[in-house]
């Protein structure tokens, strides 16, 4: 019997949960939401505000259940927001205020 390694939940090579799952080969065109998140990520990278490694680390820190529930670019915006807060580029108070104003 092969023991399951203590792998992190994003480290999916060979993961037993997926090994019998069929690939969804249908084309999914990126949405406006997807493209905007992607573009902001690129701008933050180009301006030296956030590296792609920080983005990934933030994605990996999303708890496992949520990680699998969120769409690809939902994970990105979550990680980007967490990174921007952590780095003090935006503050929690500012974000809360904008969210409240938009509610």
């Amino acid at each position: 019997m092969e023991l399951e390694a203590p792998r992190a939940h994003h480290d999916l090579g060979g993961a037993g949960t997926y090994i019998c799952q069929e690939i969804d080969r249908a084309a999914h065109t990126p949405t406006d939401f997807d493209k905007e998140v992607d573009a902001i990520r690129q701008i933050l990278g180009a301006k030296g505000i956030m590296t792609v490694d920080e983005l990934r680390r933030g994605i990996e820190e999303i708890p496992e259940a949520e990680y699998h529930q969120l769409s690809y670019y939902e994970r990105w915006i979550r990680s980007m927001t967490a990174n921007l807060l952590e780095k003090g580029v935006i503050s929690e108070a500012e974000l809360a205020a904008v969210l409240a104003a938009a509610a």
Partner: peptide, 18 residues
Amino acid sequence: DWPETRGRVHIRTPHYVR
């Protein structure tokens, strides 16, 4: 080595080659 068992990390070496 399994640094992910010891705290916050970001590792680019896939588990299956360790």
